[in-house]
Amino acid sequence: MDREPCISVRLFSDPKLLSPIRAFVDGLSKSIGFSEKSRGLLSLAVDEALANVIRHGYSERTDGLIWLNIWRLHEPAGLRIVLEDLGRSVDPTLIKGRNLADVRPGGLGVHIIKETMTESKWEMRPGGGMRLTLVKLLAPEERENSSPTQSENCTP
């Protein structure tokens, strides 16, 4: 990523912050032109990603740091969202959505993220913790609503 993000947010690993972050992601993605359904899925994926960091990375501690950086993408248009934390690192090859035929509670977050995002990639951060990169591209019918003004604001 060679450009500065459009938006950088630093937050604590407190589940009470999930709701305002969802509202923020929904508002941002609306301004870019995502449909209501896409916005809901995008907010859901970010919520699941943050919940996984809180639950597994920080073992439900509420004072862990999480960085949320967002870039607007052009050609193809969309959003790149990068979440970083300083919690427990895990081998990314072990992060898998579970078999949905096995009906039981839990383990659905990774499946939801992979299913709703165009791309999702987990990495171990060199300084500790994890980095998750999420990409969601606008669907062809959504590109008509895409705002070029926003695009200029995001390109330094």
């Binding site: 999930l18 969802r22 919940a51 009906v103 509670p105 839990g106 659905l108 939801i112």
Partner: peptide
């Protein structure tokens, strides 16, 4: 208005 996988897991548990 909104439910994530925690809510879904709760309903799966309720179903079981």
């Amino acid at each position: 208005a909104y439910m994530d996988s925690s809510g879904i897991a709760t309903l799966v548990e309720a179903l079981q």
